[in-house]
C-alpha cells in the first residue's frame, strides 16, 4: 500500500530539501567554519577591507570559472584560458597604444578570444581531437602570440582614459564595479544553466553523448559553442584585468587555468562531464581565495601556499568520489 502511494504520487522534492542535498551547502559550511576560525586567529581577517580584497581577488577569475564550468559539464576542458586572458589583455592594450579608443580595442580583444575558441572548437568537433590536447596546444600557441604582440615586454597603459580605468578600479557607492560585473555574470549564467534550453543541451551532451545524439541533439554544435563561450569569457576577464591594472604583461595568467579547473572541480563539476553548477564553482574559487588569504594573514610562507591548495583539491575530490561510490552501492 505504501509503495503504491509512493509510486503514484510523483512530486518534486520540497525546495529546502533540494537545497540541503546540494553540494553547495557543504562548501558554504566549510567556508564559514574557516572564516570563524580565522576571525579568532587573526584580528585583520574579519574586516571589511579584507573581505573586499578577497572578493576582488577572485572576481575576475570567477568570470573565467563560469566558462570553464560549462565546458566541464559538456565533457571538455580548456587549458588555454590563462593564455587567452593574457592575449585579450595584450591585444587590446597594443591596439589602444596604436591609437584605437579603449572600448573598441577591448571589443576586438574579446572577439579575437572568441575566434581562438572557435579554432579550438573546430579542432575538437570537425577534426576530432580531444579538448585536452587541443587546448594544451592552444595554451602554448596563444602564449606565443602574447609574446609576439608585445615583443616580450610589458605594455604600460597609464594613458588609459579614467572612464575606462573606472571599470576595473572604480566603485559604485563603495561597491567596486568589478564585483558588480562578476555577480551579474554569475547570476546570469547560473540562471541560464538551470533554465535555458540551449544550456540544458550542454548537460545532455556531457552526461551521455550517444544518448544525446540519439535524442536528436547536435552534440558537435553544442561542444563547439561551449568552447567558444569559455574563450570569450576568458577574453572578457582579460579586458577587465587590463582596466584594473592599467598594464598588460605577456606573462600574466601563467598557471591560472589550474586554479580555475580546481575551483570548478571542488565545486562539483565532473571531469567526465554531465554535472556541475556555477554556484558550486564560485564557492570553490571562494574557498581557495579564503585559504590563500588565511595563509597570508597567518604569515605562512608563500612557498607553502600552492602545496596546501593542491592538497585541498585532492581532499575535496577524494571525499566526493567516496560519497559517490557509497551512493552507488
Amino acid at each position: 500500500m505504501l509503495a503504491e502511494t509512493m509510486g503514484t504520487t510523483a512530486v518534486r522534492a520540497p525546495s529546502w530539501k533540494r537545497l540541503g542535498s546540494m553540494r553547495e551547502a557543504g562548501l558554504v559550511a566549510i567556508i564559514l567554519a574557516l572564516c570563524i576560525a580565522m576571525s579568532f586567529a587573526s584580528p585583520h581577517f574579519l574586516t571589511l577591507g579584507n573581505f573586499r580584497a578577497m572578493l576582488m581577488s577572485f572576481s575576475v577569475e570567477g568570470i573565467v570559472v563560469v566558462g570553464m564550468t560549462i565546458l566541464l559539464i559538456v565533457g571538455g576542458i580548456d587549458l588555454a584560458v590563462g593564455s587567452v586572458v593574457c592575449f585579450a589583455m595584450v591585444l587590446s592594450g597594443s591596439l589602444f597604444l596604436a591609437g584605437l579608443d579603449p572600448w573598441s580595442a577591448s571589443l576586438i580583444g574579446i572577439l579575437a578570444s572568441a575566434l581562438i575558441g572557435a579554432v579550438m572548437g573546430f579542432f575538437v568537433t570537425v577534426v576530432g581531437l580531444n579538448h585536452f590536447i587541443t587546448s594544451l596546444a592552444g595554451m602554448v600557441i596563444v602564449r606565443g602570440l602574447c609574446l609576439i604582440i608585445t615583443k616580450g615586454t610589458p605594455l604600460s597603459l597609464f594613458t588609459l582614459p579614467p572612464a575606462f580605468k573606472a571599470v576595473g578600479q572604480g566603485s559604485f557607492h563603495g561597491l567596486p564595479y568589478v564585483i558588480i560585473i562578476f555577480v551579474a555574470v554569475v547570476v546570469l549564467f547560473d540562471f541560464l544553466l538551470r533554465r535555458a534550453t540551449a544550456l540544458r543541451k550542454v548537460f545532455y551532451t556531457g552526461s551521455n553523448e550517444k544518448a544525446a545524439l540519439y535524442s536528436g541533439i547536435r552534440t558537435n554544435y553544442v561542444k563547439f559553442w561551449v568552447t567558444v563561450l569559455c574563450s570569450t569569457l576568458a577574453g572578457f576577464a582579460g579586458v577587465i584585468y587590463m582596466s584594473r591594472f592599467g598594464a598588460a604583461t605577456p606573462t600574466f595568467g601563467v598557471g591560472m587555468e589550474l586554479n580555475i579547473i580546481a575551483a570548478a572541480v571542488i565545486g562539483g563539476a565532473s571531469l567526465n562531464g554531465g554535472s556541475g553548477t556555477i554556484l558550486g564553482a564560485i564557492l570553490g574559487i571562494a574557498l581557495l581565495s579564503v585559504v590563500t588569504s588565511s595563509l597570508v594573514l597567518l604569515n605562512v610562507s608563500v612557498y607553502w601556499q600552492d602545496m596546501i591548495k593542491g592538497c585541498i583539491l585532492l581532499g575535496a575530490v577524494s571525499i566526493d568520489h567516496f560519497l559517490h561510490k557509497r551512493k552507488a552501492s
Binding site: 518534486r12 533554465r195 535555458a196 534550453t197 540551449a198 540544458r200 543541451k201 548537460f203 545532455y204 552526461s207 551521455n208 550517444k210 544518448a211 544525446a212 545524439l213 540519439y214 535524442s215 536528436g216 541533439i217 565532473s270 554531465g274 554535472s275
Partner: peptide, 30 residues
Amino acid sequence: KGSGVFLDLSIAQNISVLNLDALTGRLGLI
C-alpha cells in the same frame, strides 16, 4: 545505459529531452 538514458541527470530532465521545444517559452527558457 550506453545510449538510452542520462544516468546522472534527473528523471524530469530525462523525460523532457526529446520535447524541449514544447517546454521552452519566450527567451529560450525552460
